[in-house]
Amino acid sequence: MHLPEPVAEEAPRPPWLHLRKRAAQAGLTGFDVVCANVGTRYAHGTEGDRGAAAVVPPHLARVAQGLAMFLAGRRDCDAREVFSSGHGAMALRYGRPVVAQAVYDQVVCGGELAGVASSEPHSGSDLRGLRTVAVDHGDHFVLSGMKGLVGRVDEATGFVVFCKVVPSEQAAVQGADVAWLREVPLSALWLPTATAGVLTETTVPLGLRGWSLGHLRFDDVRVGSELLLGVPGDGRRIFDTHFSGWRLMMALVCLGAATAAIEETMARARRRSVGRTCLANVPSVVSRLGIAAAEIQAATAWCFSLLERIEQEGDEVDVAACSAAKALATDASYRAVDIGLQLHGSEGYTRRTPMEKRLRDIRGLRIADGPNDTLYGVLAQSLLSETRPAAPLVAQRRA
C-alpha cells in the first residue's frame, strides 16, 4: 500500500521507521514469535483490522515471516526491517520475563527496532575470536569492547550483544592478554541503547542506506544480571538458532528483489528491439533470463523448505544447510540483478531505475551475517565431518 513501486536511489527515501510503526499497528511486527515469556502471542491490530498473528497459524509463523521478507524485497531491500520482530526475537525467546516484556512493548507493540552486535573489527565472522568482555560481579556485569559495522546503530532501541562472560577474579588475573578468551564460551546480553557508556559512531555504506550502519563501543558499561539471555555460555546456541532462520530471511529479501528485477527485464525485452528483432526473441537474451529465473526459483524453494523444517524441528536447526542456502540465494540474486541491469543498457546504470540500488544492496547482504565463502564452508565442513553422522545432501520433506 505504501510502496506501490520498487524504490530507486534517485527517488525520495521512504520513511522506513514510520512505516514500521504503521506495521506494528497492523500486527505485522510480532507474528513470527510466540511470546511465551510475556504470556501471549501478539495479535494486535488497528480498529477494524485483524492482527497478522490472528491469521497466521503458529506452525507457519516462520514461513509467513519469509514471505513477508520476499515481498519486502520486491519493493526494496531496505523494507526488510519493516516486518516481524527481527533480532528482538532473541530477547523474546531467551530473555527473562522483565526483558521479554520490555522488548515486547517496544519492538512488537511500539514498532521500534532491535539490533545485534556480534562481529568485531579484528575478528569478522570468527565468533571464538570475540574480545568484548562482560565481567561478572554477581548482581551485574561490566561490559567493555567494540563492535564493528552494526546495522540500525542509530535506530535500534537496544542490541543483543554477543560477548564473553568471565568472573571478576579471572579478568583481574589475565590482564591485557586476550588469547585465553578464545576458550571462553559465547554469551549474549540484551543492552538498551540508552545505557550509560554505550557510544555509537556511524559510517556510510555502499548500499543498504535506508538504515544506519556503524560501530558500538562499550566503555565499562554496567549491565544488570537480569539482562543476560539464557545462561552464561549459551550464546552460540542462541546465535546459531536465530541466525539460521535470519539468514534465510535475508536470502528471501534478495530473492524478492531478484524476482522483481527479472520481471522488469522481461517486460523491457518484450518492448525493445534490436534492428527488426524483438529483444525477447534474441536467443542469448532469452537463455540468460531463463538461467537467472531457474536459479532464483530453485533457491526460493530451498529457503522455504528449510523454513518449514525449522517450524517442524524447533531448535534442531540445520545450521549448515541454512548457511549455504543464504549464500546460494544471495549469489544467484546478484547474478540475476546484474543481468537485468545489463539488459537495461545505459539506463540500468542510472539511479532512475531500481537496478543499481538492488545491485549495491544485495552486494551488502552477501557479506552481512557471514560472508558467503564462509557459509559455503560451513556446509562443506558439516558434510566432511567424521565426528558426527554426516548431514544429508538432500533432506526429505516431512508430511
Rank of each mutant, 00 (worst) to 15 (best):
4 P>G: 09
7 V>M: 05
9 E>M: 12
14 P>F: 02
17 L>A: 15
19 L>D: 05
20 R>N: 07
21 K>F: 00
23 A>H: 08
26 A>P: 01
27 G>A: 06
34 V>E: 08
36 A>I: 02
39 G>W: 07
40 T>A: 13
42 Y>N: 10
42 Y>L: 07
44 H>L: 07
44 H>D: 07
44 H>M: 00
46 T>K: 01
47 E>I: 05
50 R>Y: 12
52 A>F: 12
53 A>C: 07
54 A>N: 14
55 V>I: 15
57 P>N: 05
58 P>Q: 04
59 H>F: 02
59 H>W: 05
68 A>H: 03
70 F>P: 05
71 L>W: 03
72 A>R: 05
75 R>N: 05
77 C>Q: 07
79 A>Y: 08
80 R>Q: 10
80 R>D: 01
80 R>Y: 08
82 V>L: 15
85 S>H: 05
97 P>L: 00
99 V>M: 03
100 A>E: 00
108 V>N: 08
113 L>Y: 13
116 V>D: 08
118 S>M: 14
122 H>V: 06
122 H>P: 05
124 G>C: 04
125 S>K: 12
128 R>Q: 14
136 D>W: 02
141 F>H: 02
143 L>V: 03
144 S>A: 11
148 G>S: 15
155 E>Q: 13
158 G>P: 08
158 G>T: 09
164 K>I: 04
166 V>H: 03
169 E>T: 10
170 Q>P: 00
173 V>S: 09
174 Q>E: 06
175 G>S: 00
182 R>Y: 03
188 A>W: 12
189 L>M: 12
191 L>K: 06
194 A>Q: 15
198 V>A: 08
202 T>E: 13
206 L>A: 14
206 L>Q: 14
212 S>E: 10
214 G>C: 09
215 H>M: 07
216 L>Q: 06
217 R>W: 03
217 R>P: 01
218 F>G: 01
237 R>C: 10
239 F>R: 15
239 F>L: 15
251 A>L: 04
252 L>C: 08
253 V>L: 09
257 A>P: 00
258 A>M: 02
267 A>P: 00
270 R>M: 03
272 R>G: 12
274 V>T: 08
278 C>G: 13
280 A>W: 00
284 S>L: 10
288 R>N: 06
294 A>V: 07
295 E>Y: 06
296 I>A: 02
299 A>P: 09
305 S>N: 13
306 L>T: 04
308 E>Q: 13
309 R>I: 02
310 I>R: 13
318 D>K: 00
319 V>W: 15
323 S>P: 04
323 S>H: 07
324 A>P: 03
329 A>D: 05
330 T>C: 13
333 S>C: 07
337 V>S: 09
338 D>R: 13
338 D>W: 09
339 I>A: 11
341 L>K: 12
342 Q>W: 01
346 S>D: 11
346 S>I: 03
359 L>M: 05
359 L>Y: 05
364 G>K: 12
366 R>W: 04
366 R>Y: 03
367 I>Y: 11
370 G>P: 03
374 T>F: 13
374 T>S: 07
375 L>M: 14
384 L>P: 00
399 A>H: 08
